[in-house]
């Protein structure tokens, strides 16, 4: 039997057979550095494999093409609610494209069984924040593609381009804040796709409605006095979900 001699020094335990064990807990990694490492890793893997990007872009392009072929360019005289319809179509395309790709950040870790290595090594908060950033980047790329396709193929006129970009960016933040935690919850389930849609849908309806209104304001060229309200609501919603996710993620990740 070997007994530890804990009196030798504060930082080192020397057992009788010359076992040296550092007794100091190493300095915790900086959250920013660990978050960046997770983000970089996901980005590098995505750029090499294109698991999510291809699925998202394929869905986005085919949706917009199908809409444009089905409706053709809608002339303003055809409908008084034209801008609202265009905004709704664009966000529905974004929403369903997001459904196909945003869960992958966590599902991929479970499917390829790398989640265990990540759980043992990385601080949970860094995993959440790194994947949130990755999903946000993915959705912003998707925003740019879908917005460009909509404007080009449906001949959508944008009255207030800056407000349009702001609503798209903040609406995407809300989508990502809602879906990233849900993705972590469903990653180990068997019917991932269906579960992701079922759990995300109630969380996504409120920001979706607000984002559609905000986008319609931007397309109509409304002033910032009108357009700021939906942006503020989306920001508040994103913040609330983000804070809730920070508290909940550790339990979800380690469950």
């Amino acid at each position: 039997m070997i007994d530890s001699d804990q009196t030798t020094s504060e930082s080192t335990l020397i057992a009788k057979n010359n076992v040296q064990v550092s007794s100091l807990k190493p300095q915790a990694p900086s959250l920013a550095a660990a978050t960046l490492a997770v983000f970089r890793k996901d980005l590098r893997i995505e750029l090499r494999s294109r698991y999510a990007l291809n699925a998202l872009l394929l869905f986005a392009v085919s949706t917009v093409v199908a809409i444009s072929l089905g409706l053709g360019p809608i002339a303003p005289r055809d409908n008084r609610d034209l801008k609202l319809i265009q905004a709704a179509l664009m966000w529905v395309a974004l929403l369903f494209a997001a459904f196909t790709g945003l869960a992958r950040a966590f599902v991929q870790e479970e499917d390829t069984r790398t989640a265990t290595a990540l759980r043992l090594a990385a601080p949970p908060l860094a995993v959440y924040l790194g994947k949130l950033l990755f999903n946000l980047l993915l959705l912003l790329v998707l925003d740019a593609v879908i917005a460009a396709l909509f404007i080009a193929m449906l001949r959508v006129g944008v009255g207030a381009p800056l407000m349009f970009a702001a609503v798209l960016a903040v609406g995407s933040c809300a989508l990502v804040a809602a879906t990233t935690l849900i993705a972590a919850i469903i990653a180990r389930a068997s019917a991932k796709g269906a579960l992701f849609a079922v759990l995300s849908f109630p969380l996504l309806i409120p920001p979706l409605v607000v984002a559609i209104r905000g986008t319609a304001f931007a397309l109509e060229g409304e002033s910032w006095a009108v357009g700021a309200a939906p942006i503020q609501v989306l920001l508040a919603y994103t913040l609330a979900l983000f804070v809730a996710s920070l508290f909940l993620f550790k339990s979800v990740w380690e469950a």
Binding site: P26, Q27, P29, S30, A33, A34, A37, K41, L118, A121
Partner: peptide, 9 residues
């Protein structure tokens, strides 16, 4: 490198 980074090494 990735696992060293997330461990703060």
């Amino acid at each position: 490198r990735f696992f060293a980074d997330v461990r703060g090494l």
